[in-house]
Design a protein around this nucleic acid. Sequence first.
DNA 1: AGAAGATAGCTTTTT
DNA 2: GCTATCTTCT
Length: 768
Amino acid sequence: MTDYISQLNPRQQEAVLHGDGPLLVFAGAGSGKTRVLTYRVARLIQEGVDPYNIIAITFTNKAAKEMRERIAHITPLGDQVWVSTFHAACTRILRRDIHLLGYQSGFSIYDAQDSERLLKLCIKEENLDDKQYPPGGISHTISAQKNLLVTPEEYEQSVGADYRLGNVANIYTRYQRKLFENNALDFDDIIMLTVKLLAENDDVRERYQRRFRYVLVDEYQDTNQAQYRLVELLAGKYKNLCVVGDDDQCIYGWRGANIENILRFEADYPGARTIKLEQNYRSTQTILDAANLIISGNEQRAEKALWTENAAGVPLRIYNARDERDEGQFVAQSITYAYDRGATYNDFAVLYRGNAQSRAVEEQLIMAGIPYRLFGGVRFYERMEVKDILAYLKAINNPTDDMALRRIINVPRRGIGDTTINRVANYAYDHQINFAAALDAEIPGITKNTRAKLAEFAIYMKEWHQLASTNPVAELLTQILTDTQYLESLNDGTPEAQTRIENVHELLAKAKEFEATAQDASLTNFLTEVGLVADIDNYDESAGAVSLMTLHSAKGLEFNRVFIVGFEEYTFPSARSVLSETPREIEEERRLCYVGFTRARQRLYLSHAYSRMKNGQRMQCLPSRFLKEVPPHYTEPVNAHGRPKGFVPSRANDFIANAASTSHPMAGNRSFSSRSTSAPPQASTGRTARPSFLQDMHTPIASTSNTPQKTPTNTPFQIGDKVRDPKLGRGMVMAVAANGADIELTIDFPNIGQRKRLAGLFGIMKIE
DNA sequence: AGAAGATAGCTTTTT
DNA sequence: GCTATCTTCT
């Protein structure tokens, strides 16, 4: 720890050594931001500040975890610093004092899915048509209001006599009341209510202000109004506030992030020192120049220019694909080409604007036998079976959580149908009691038989509730699984059944791990922890696979080689932003582009297709406007293998030149059977059955252990797969056989009423 | 009550 | 193309 200061550049040193008072650090991409933050915390402790008096706030658990570990690594007392996400920090504050707002400490946390379900209920109860009041849109509106700290009452006032908005206000009011009645908070409430708590209770505010003499905030450009206010409240007494961010990387405006917060910092905190970190340690000069040129197209930004001492590197590689399939092949072939010459799969990331784009790339990676991990899509804690089990825990932990209870009352099937549930709900509503209480009531219209089922369920609930007060989470879970036969109910013969069962076991393992590591292993804390995780939190650098994710998810990560696919108008920038024609939205897309470019250390591949399927329709596409913003001398067109057109091997600066002399241990070792020993059985059945929770490795092997020996192992196809042949159309694989070196598939084509045996498999692609 | 089949509607990004 | 919801059937 002694000599760490000398490892920093002058600007970084200045930020680390800054004493008391507000400090703004503009940290460009790859400029050593995390380093500065962690060293600054270490320095404070070294100077005699009690770690107890420091809080560092991030947006993701991953960032928090990384910072916590790095601080603990450089200074012995580091692990006492409070490092957490906005949401985790606020939840902790609320668990302690939320009774002052009328809620109870064991409140449930509703994710986007939960809150939308509740919202639908509210729209229904207001007797409004969910076509005219689409839950998604209303949810966005309510979220926006909460981010601006606008209460239902204030919103109602602000909309005046507007009929439609008046109804929206009514929905908001009802929604908020229901959350309260359920003793539940949505994500926005977590911040909003913490602000309310601190603003309205002098003693609570005073306590936290005194405690947090030093406040550090990461990614300040992504704070929304509520978070801004929260930071203001926390740091209000000592003003020892250090915020780090990059206005050029503000990409969450649609979610309420206010880029003004960082641009206004000096005005908000008079006497603030501003430091700009502009030296980039990550990318080549070429990549950086291109990124700088892109971002300079934006009006609303603080002036700065990244520079680097790194070499110029190679030009950006541009591929014009025919369609998304060709584009996927380009990605796969380029990766294979580089892999065969010593690159590793972790070197690569494929970034795209929207999750829907992953499919085309996935198909080609599977065909080429390239292992990959997919981020985004359905996440572990959003999976049906995991949410079911968590709903049991929520309902047990928080008996007023009607939403959780309603979710599980007939899962697994207990013969309690929608009619009954609605009768109970209506009864509860009419008598102003919660759903759980209504289970024991004499409700008109419910038959004796059904009432017995309700009563039986109610008894179980009481038993579990009892169990929860004395036993650890994992034991409670086990008991629930036994009592309900939930696992058995999952075993329905569908291809996903096995994965679902595994996911439940995974959750059980999570619970055990939680018990082993948590300081206070209460059920409430377990639910808090699992309620606030994001997909990217599970990113693991060393997984030996290509990473596929959205540009948003990629923020904060870096890769040696980055593909940005779908670099087209109406895809990137998104159709929405183009059609809106508001500079604000296009500027955010441009920032997203800047984020994407600066993820790459060595190489950046950009591809666009001439045509692409969108919403089931084939669309013509034009190259992204951002592509035109990069001058031609920074770029070079490449072929479908990622090689420069007219490539000559002796060319200086090219990869093959040095790869030829040093043989990589992995080079040439690409046979499928030797690489993977235990492919998960669902590996090639498609994304819905794939757990993204752990390393989501993809291997093309149908099955290594339980298939006859003659079945070829190096094929992505297995019996039952739905496939498409370019000439014959859709079909289903009926048999897989080896025919010499070739693979032979027997495929049923229902549309032509024929069964064909095909060898060579040219153009046959798996579909879902 | 529950399953299978048909149709409408929608897709940016996520703590 | 996919999914969530509605409809129809058992």
